[in-house]
């Protein structure tokens, strides 16, 4: 790469704000705000899941409900390779193994199912969550005769830093895909798959590859989160809400740029946190659903789309298009 071609001014403009935010986040555990560390961990989980979900589904329009499956693979990787007693791999190694396993599963599943379109793809991917749940449940109860497993705990700070690291990797991967020809190919597939194929895009390969990359990222979150709870079993690992939440958060935040999904994830997971810890627990799903219906009806571009529209309106006629 020719370094003199890089526009440093442009580059610093793009990366200055994210770097400041990242630095502030990195120093989080030193603020002495115990709750902050766990709250922001909670945010990071959903940001990573939502951004990885958008990486594939946002661009192509293939609605995947397999998030919980890959998250669950992460949890079980931790349960098997990082257990409370006996032989245990270091967490970073578990993360790598789990990412590789998820990548492989997603690659195979993707190769089989990515010719399905619309609702059929969504249903199949959701079926994968249920399938993995049933298989693991069966193996544990009927063959091993032991339900659930114990995972070695990690401190809140360790969990936080791992999530922050995964978050940075996720953002870099997203940025890389968006700014290379593969991002363009992915968008063209979302716009018109036939036209993309006849323009030389290896549609199947691009779809399967990005689907697998996003799955790998999702599973790493599962690994880290498993170390927060002592006991995991199939029903906690493959919780269907983990499939729905990222999709809903992305729709709420808006998928046009990188910030939409992140903002959606933070707002929604905060609402979840307050409601689920208070005595309004039972109302969480009700409020969640209502907000979502309102979003789809009144701001189809999501929160960021709404802000963008208001901003354009404020700037007003000065910037009106000169040609129709």
């Amino acid at each position: 790469m020719n370094l003199s071609n890089i526009n440093w001014k442009q580059l610093s403009k793009t990366f200055a704000a994210p770097l400041v935010i990242l630095l502030a986040l990195a120093l989080m555990p030193f603020y002495g705000w115990e709750y902050g560390v766990s709250l922001f961990s909670h945010f990071l989980i959903y940001i990573i899941l939502t951004v990885s979900w958008v990486m594939f589904s946002g661009a192509t329009g293939y609605i995947s409900l397999a998030t919980a499956a890959f998250y669950g693979i992460g949890i079980y990787s931790a349960a098997l390779l990082h257990p409370a007693t006996g032989f245990s791999l270091p967490l970073i190694a578990v993360i790598i193994v789990s990412a590789a396993a998820s990548f492989l599963v997603a690659f195979i599943v993707g190769a089989i199912t990515l010719r399905l379109k619309g609702i059929y793809f969504a249903m199949f991917t959701f079926g994968l969550v249920l399938l993995l749940f049933q298989v693991i449940n069966y193996v544990e109860t009927s063959i091993l005769g032991q339900r659930g497993r114990f995972v070695a705990l990690e401190s809140n700070e360790t969990i936080y830093y791992y999530l922050l690291g995964i978050f940075v990797v996720t953002m870099i991967v997203t940025f890389f895909i968006k700014n290379t020809k593969y991002g363009l190919a992915l968008r063209s597939i979302g716009e018109n798959e036939d036209a993309a194929a006849h323009s030389g895009v290896n549609v199947t390969m691009v779809k399967v590859l990005i689907f697998a990359v996003s799955a790998a990222l999702m599973s790493t979150v599962g690994v880290v989160m498993a170390t927060k709870t002592i006991y995991v079993d199939a029903s906690t690992a493959f919780n269907p809400m983990m499939s729905f939440s990222p999709a809903l958060m992305a729709i709420f935040g808006g998928m046009a740029n990188l910030y939409g999904p992140a903002v959606g994830a933070v707002i929604f997971s905060y609402v979840q946190e307050i409601l689920q810890t208070g005595n309004l627990n039972n109302y969480y799903m009700l409020i969640f659903g209502s907000i979502l219906i309102a979003t789809i009806l009144y701001m189809p571009q999501g929160l960021m789309g709404l802000i963008q529209n208001l901003w354009n309106r404020l700037k007003g006629a000065k910037r009106a298009l000169t040609r129709g």
Binding site: L184, A185, R187, S188, E191, N192, A196, G200, N202
Partner: peptide
């Protein structure tokens, strides 16, 4: 069958990057 939400340049760029 165009890529409707993409600018005209990107429509053409796809052909150049992947076809050629």
């Amino acid at each position: 069958k165009i890529f409707g939400n993409m600018p005209v340049v990107d429509n053409v760029k796809i052909g150049l990057l992947f076809g050629a």
